[in-house]
Structures are given as structure tokens and as C-alpha cells.
């Protein structure tokens, strides 16, 4: 009896692995192996040290790396603030209004990055809405160059990622038991104190998850900096693309790829650890 059940267990385990195998094969064959291959390309070239040295000491590459980090950081902070305000209101709205507001946040999310970045080309362009407005109000006498600036890239990325922040925060805020706010109020907490001492600490995991998504997303974004930043505002993703597809410097592209993967993983790991520390209740 015991023996046969063990045998069927082993058979079950084999069947289970069989079910997972095709999906594993896709991830392993199309992602893990090729990316590992890319990552080891500079290492196995025999001049890895020189490659990375050149990358990190080159003034242009340094500027691009710093710009990419700066853009990602600013985008994260701005989307966090905008997303939290919107999500807080959405989570507390009556059922019907809440559904409509969630749809309104999801719709831009489902509209492609190219379309959404293009929208800001129209708005920030020389004949665009923003310049029209500035001239009418008298803040500018001639059309300003807004496109192809770091500002344009950040606005575009904030636009891209705020809905993501809203959607991930609404879920977290809705899951906070309303009785906790009531309990806090019954114990004398003013609405402000309820927010600071109960809602905000409980929302921290959601804030961190949202921040990770936005930071890594804007750190690696391609279409938006390509369209709104152009060559003047090259970031790591567009630089990788140029090296790979324009100047056919695949070794250089692989070097950038490694840098991007390492920074992304570092940020994800650091933020996950931070989340654990800040909210032991979930750990």
C-alpha cells in the first residue's frame, strides 16, 4: 500500500513536471539562455575589463547612465505622488464612481506606449497646446523648445506610468479594512492622524511595489525617450538600440545590456528588502 502510493507519487511528480515543461522551455530557451549569452559576451571576449572601463569612464556613457537614473528617479517620485492622490480618492469613492475611475485609469494603460508618447509630441511640439497656452498667457513670446528635452521625457514617462501606480495602489488601499480607520477614530485619532498612522504605513508595501514597477519601467523604457528625447536625450535603452542597430557595435550593446540588467535587479532586490523591513506584518 505504502509502496504503491509512493510510486504513484513519483508518477504524479513526473506528470506535474511534464505540464510545466513547455513553459519552462520557452523561458529558458528564449530568455535565460540568450540573455546569459549576451551577458557573457563581453566577459568571454577577453577584454571585459577594458570594455566596462571604457563604458564607465567615457564622459558620454556616464552622462547617459546618470541621465537615465535621474529620469527614472524623478518619474518614480512624481508618479508616486500623483498616483497616490488619485488612488486614495478612487478607493474611497462610491462603488459606481470607483468603477468608472478605474476604467479611466486602465484605458490609458491599455493604449500603447507609442500612441501615448506621440500624444505628448503633439502637445509639446512647436505648434502644440503647451506652447499655445504659454504664449496666450504671456509666459513666452516665441514657441519654446520643449520636445527633445529631459522635461519632455519625464512628462511622457510620468504619463505612461501614473495609471500603473493608480491601479496597483487602489487594490492595496481597498484592502485596508475600513474598521481600522473607525477603530483609530474611536480612539481619538483625527482624520490626519488616521492617514499618517494607519493608512500610510499599511499602504507602504503597495507604494514600494508601485515604485519598483515605475522605476524599472522608466529606467528601461525605449519608445518614450526615443520619441520625446531624441538623440539629444539619449538614455541607456536608446543607446543600446543605436549600438545594436545603427552602428552594429554588438559588443558595446551587450555591455550596456549587462549594466541595465544588473541595475534593474539591484533595485528590485533592494526595494523588496526595504518592503520587508518596513512592514514586518506581511513578512
Amino acid at each position: 500500500m505504502a509502496k504503491s502510493s509512493k510510486a504513484s507519487d513519483r508518477q504524479g511528480a513526473a506528470a506535474t513536471w511534464l505540464l510545466v515543461a513547455p513553459a519552462l522551455a520557452i523561458v529558458a530557451g528564449l530568455l535565460v539562455a540568450p540573455v546569459a549569452n549576451t551577458a557573457t559576451m563581453p566577459l568571454t571576449s577577453g577584454r571585459a575589463v577594458a570594455l566596462y572601463q571604457r563604458f564607465f569612464t567615457g564622459a558620454f556613457n556616464q552622462a547617459v547612465t546618470l541621465r537615465t537614473l535621474e529620469i527614472a528617479a524623478v518619474t518614480t517620485v512624481v508618479s508616486l505622488v500623483l498616483g497616490f492622490v488619485a488612488a486614495y480618492v478612487v478607493a474611497r469613492a462610491p462603488q459606481k464612481a470607483r468603477s468608472i475611475l478605474i476604467v479611466a485609469a486602465v484605458f490609458p494603460l491599455l493604449t500603447g506606449t507609442v500612441v501615448r508618447s506621440f500624444a505628448f509630441m503633439v502637445i509639446l511640439g512647436r505648434n502644440g497646446l503647451a506652447n499655445d497656452f504659454l504664449q496666450k498667457v504671456g509666459l513666452a513670446s516665441a514657441p519654446l523648445q520643449m520636445l527633445y528635452t529631459e522635461f519632455a521625457v519625464i512628462v511622457g514617462l510620468v504619463y505612461l506610468f501614473t495609471p500603473l501606480m493608480i491601479v496597483s495602489l487602489v487594490g492595496v488601499l481597498e484592502n485596508i479594512d475600513p474598521d481600522l480607520s473607525r477603530a483609530a477614530a474611536s480612539l481619538g485619532a483625527t482624520p490626519g492622524a488616521v492617514f499618517r498612522q494607519v493608512i500610510l504605513p499599511l499602504a507602504v508595501p503597495g507604494l514600494i511595489v508601485g515604485s519598483v514597477l515605475v522605476f524599472t519601467g522608466s529606467f528601461t523604457a525605449f519608445a518614450t525617450p526615443q520619441l520625446l528625447g531624441g538623440e539629444q536625450q539619449t538614455v541607456l535603452a536608446t543607446l543600446l538600440y543605436q549600438k545594436a542597430m545603427v552602428s552594429f557595435d554588438w559588443m558595446g550593446a551587450a555591455t550596456i545590456a549587462t549594466v541595465m540588467v544588473v541595475i534593474t535587479l539591484l533595485v528590485v532586490v533592494a526595494m523588496t528588502m526595504l518592503a520587508r523591513r518596513l512592514n514586518p506584518a506581511t513578512g
Binding site: 479594512d177 474598521d179 481600522l180 473607525r182 477603530a183 483609530a184 474611536s186 492622524a193
Partner: peptide, 18 residues
């Protein structure tokens, strides 16, 4: 509510999880 000074015990306890 926060000015009423009433001690409330909730059905689901409503303890602050953090």
C-alpha cells in the same frame, strides 16, 4: 467620531496589523 471618547471593541477586533 474621534472627539466622542468612546471605547469600541470590534467584531473582527480591528487591530492595527503594523
Amino acid at each position: 467620531p474621534h472627539k466622542r471618547d468612546i471605547g469600541l471593541v470590534f467584531q473582527n477586533y480591528a487591530l492595527f496589523p503594523h
